[in-house]
Structures are given as structure tokens and as C-alpha cells.
Design a binder for these strands. Sequence first.
DNA 1: GTGTACCGATACGGTCGAGTACCGGTACAC
DNA 2: GTGTACCGGTACTCGACCGTATCGGTACAC
Lengths: 204, 204
Amino acid sequence: MASQAADRPEPVATSRRSKLTPEREQEFFDAVLQQIRSCGYDAVTMEGIAASTRCSKSTLYRQWKTKPQFVAAALRSSSRVRFAGIDTGSLAEDLRRAAAAAGEGTGKDTGLLQALGHAVMEDPELKCALREALVEPEIAALREILARGVARGEVPAGHPALEYVPAQLFGMLRMRPVLEGKQADAEYLVTFVEAVVLPALGLP
Amino acid sequence: MASQAADRPEPVATSRRSKLTPEREQEFFDAVLQQIRSCGYDAVTMEGIAASTRCSKSTLYRQWKTKPQFVAAALRSSSRVRFAGIDTGSLAEDLRRAAAAAGEGTGKDTGLLQALGHAVMEDPELKCALREALVEPEIAALREILARGVARGEVPAGHPALEYVPAQLFGMLRMRPVLEGKQADAEYLVTFVEAVVLPALGLP
DNA sequence: GTGTACCGATACGGTCGAGTACCGGTACAC
DNA sequence: GTGTACCGGTACTCGACCGTATCGGTACAC
């Protein structure tokens, strides 16, 4: 599982305010995000997290002041931009890749977005963390892809369908489970891109 | 406030197991749905509903066994298909009307869908009520509109973009608040339909 | 070896909400 | 007038969970 890097002998640098290794912290984060995905934000309890990670509530409250702050930290730590690095030189192909990439992680980010839905309205820090960790990086990467396509002249600048592309991709990801009860997997999303997004942009 | 219809003299038919008038019941339903929209499912309390409608908790629990059952009843009662009755004879125009209609009610059904997000995962009755009341009727009406367009020959049967139309519309409705922080109003949705949905279907 | 600082466990206080029980008041049937 | 059945109000039980406090154990520094 863990590589040799896990038990490094060196004292890292000077000292650590916490004896928790970053790997251990990540266990907490994974656990809380997993539980949020499966049970919703309100149903997740600090006691539950402590139990499932075999740490104590004290440890959680020592590191993070409150439950929302803990969750916010977990969100920030799991930031992983899925659309980064897609650049095939063709907008159509880039969009297919992006759709496939979005489909791969289905049930992770999507589930979080769903589960945190309204909890986010009450705690501004949570809201901010969610946007920074999950929403904005992906949107920015996607707009980057589109901008390159425009720069290459594949689509005229200001094409009316352009601004809707990110919302559409996320929308499909989000709505299919609701409407059809199935996850929006890579195949489904790629087909969607080819059937709708590319034609709307005037691409082959 | 209340019209004369409220204190009807007739005994309605035979007898009523409850002395609550249907109007009174609807007040409860409106109150609980409103509170769910603004605070989320978990934050809504039976005490709060009782207070805001000036009835007593006893009354609520006499009529409905539990909180989820109460909410489910409220959902069922508020079923109002927004896309029903749209039939202009032109698919493009029907879709514009549907988009506008969807935009009108923004913050009602959409908010509920958002707020109930994960609460629905735990109570099957709630889940069922939500689907029956909000999801399926709208989808069915929308598919009806599309089917008429196909029957008129405006779009070839089996056009790949057809099956995505409902999800697209709902997806936009749902994602714009997340991505842009603004409600998806009628204007936005109509523009979306014209920029993406119609071109993808090969309509003018 | 000694001190320090953190971890895990557990127990506790405080709050809040679901659901129940009981009571007085009242509208309606006969 | 009397009975019945329901409403509104309040007080209550019970459980859950947040966040705090306390204590013993242990890894590491020096």
C-alpha cells in the first residue's frame, strides 16, 4: 500500500506542532468525505469519524476547532483538478477527454456536491472551501480548454454555446442519477458531448 | 383574508375523520416546504412548523406519523406540473416555453431538490414522494413535447441529442446557482435553449 | 533519566429535537 | 343536554451529538 516514503527517518525539517503524520491526517479527511458522501453532512458526527479512524475525538478537536472547519480542511486537502493537463490540440478531442475524465471520478466530487448541498448555506467557510476545492479549479481548467480552441480558430470567439459548456457538463453529471437512477459514467458523458456539445459548437 | 369558501356550511359529504380543512392542511404543507427550501431538511423541526402555523405539535403527529411522512405528504400535495399544456405546434417554440416555465418557478422546485438532496437517501418514502411529485411528471411532460416534435417530423426519431434534453434543462437549472451564484431565470434558460438545445437538435 | 508534548480513551455538561401523554376547550351529532 | 371526537397547549421522556475536561500512556529531545 504505502510506499517507502511513508516511514521517513528524517525529522522532516525542524519540528512538527503535531505528531500526526500527513498520511494520518489524510486518513481523517478521506473518512469524513467518504461518510459525507454516503450519509450526508448532517448525519456525519465527529464521534463517528473518530471511531472509524480509531482516533479520539480529542485529537480531532485539537487539530480543528469545529466540525465545519474540519470538513473544510478535508475539502481543501482533496482538491484534485481532473481537467488539468488536457491539451490534445483539438477542441473536440479535448472535450471528449474532459467528459471521460469527469465520468471517471463519478460518485466522488459529484456526491460531495450533492451531500453538502445545503449545509454550505449556513457556514461561509464551508461554502468557500467547497468552491475553492471542487468548483472553481475545474471550471477554470475547462474554460482554458475552450479558450485554446477559440485561439486556434476552431470556434468563433463569443459563440453563444461556449459559456454553457461547463454548466452542461456538470449538469449532466449531477442530473443523471436523479433522472435515471444511474451514475453518469465516462461513456455516457462522451456520448453526450458528441451528441450535443460538439454540434452546438459547430464542431464535427 | 380567508374567503367565504373557508366556512362552508355543508358537511361536505358524510363525515371527515379530521376537522382540519384542506385549506388548513395546505398551510402546513406550504410552511414545511418553505422552511425546507430556506433552511434544509434537517434544520426543519416539527416544533418550528407548529409554531409558524400556530397549530400544535399534537395536531401534526395526529395526522402524520413522523416527520418524513409529513414532508412526503407535503411534497405530494404540491405536485404541479409546470410543463403540462405546452403545445404550440412547433418544437422550438415549445422548448422555449418550457425553458421559460422552468425559469419562472426557479427557487421553488429547484430549491427543494437541492435541500432534500441527501435526506432522501435515508427515507425511501421521502425518496419516492420526491420522484413522484417533482421529477417524473416534469420529465414525462417534457418527453411528450419532444415526442410531438418527432411525430411532426421536425426532428428525426432517434436523434442522439433527444434523450439529453430533459437532463440538460434540469442540469442548467440546478448548476447555475452553484457555478455562477445566480438563479437560472427564464431569460437565461431561453437563451440556453436557443444557443445549445435547438442547434444540437438541428432546429433553427 | 527526565521533561515535554502529544495521542487515545472516556466521562461529562449542555443543547436540541423527535415523538408521547395529558388536559381543557369546543364544534357538531342526535 | 349529553356524548363524541378532534383541536391547541404544555410538559415530559429519550436519545443524539457537539464540544470540553481529565487522565494514563508513550515517543522523542537532551
